[in-house]
């Protein structure tokens, strides 16, 4: 980061290559859309390039700082998105379809993606950071700017909501059969 702050393009390229995929995966899981995730990450990297000098290693880890930048960008994108926009890979329900066709079309990953998309932002961020990104509870709490207890509370509610929504999807699909 010191080198990036000194305008070292090779250091910046190394940063992108070393961390790019990890952050892209987070943005994609948070936004549920690859193209938007790529845009968010590009904006975040540009911000790092232009403001590397504002990063203080003593105050926060680089990963925490970057996750926060990326998360803010993802939230901006979500706010601008049209209301009711569904995640990539999910097609709107067609009432004329039979339940068996819907079961076939909505595979397991689409159901999970859809359930994740309906979680409140903080709960979805907590799950994305702790479950999918593998961050420690302290690091994830730092990204969300909450204490560990509050993070655990978010995770418990997120998992409970996910369980309910997945069960509801299953019930609504099997109901007509």
């Amino acid at each position: 980061m010191v080198l990036v702050a000194r305008c070292d393009e090779r250091a910046y390229a190394m940063l992108v290559q070393r961390h790019g995929y990890k952050y892209l995966a987070f943005a994609e899981r948070f936004l549920g859309n690859r193209a938007e995730a790529e845009d968010a990450l590009q904006d975040a990297f540009l911000k790092v390039w232009s403001r590397a000098g504002t990063f203080h290693a003593g105050k926060a880890k680089f990963t925490t700082w970057f996750y926060r930048i990326l998360l803010n960008r993802c939230l901006d994108i979500r706010r601008k998105a049209t209301p009711g926009q569904m995640p990539e890979g999910y097609d709107a329900m067609d009432e004329r379809e039979g339940a068996d066709q819907r079961l076939y079309r909505l595979d397991g990953s689409s159901k999970v993606r859809m359930a994740l998309a309906t979680l409140p932002d903080k709960q979805r961020t907590a799950v994305a950071l702790c479950y999918f990104q593998g961050l420690s509870n302290r690091d994830a709490a730092a990204v969300l700017d909450v204490n560990v207890k509050a993070l655990e509370s978010l995770l418990v509610r997120a998992r409970s909501n996910l369980r309910d929504r997945l069960a509801h999807q299953k019930a609504s699909l099997l109901g007509p059969l």
Binding site: Y12, V16, Y21, L41, S50, S109, L162, R163
Partner: peptide, 29 residues
């Protein structure tokens, strides 16, 4: 049970060369 459901979500596709190149297009500083 919930972990098994969450694990159905596939890993995001890897970053291709074009995407790396896009991220490396930065303004001169």
């Amino acid at each position: 049970k919930l972990d098994t459901s969450l694990d159905k979500l596939p890993e995001p596709a890897p970053m291709g060369a074009a995407l790396y190149a896009r991220f490396l297009r930065i303004p001169k500083k």
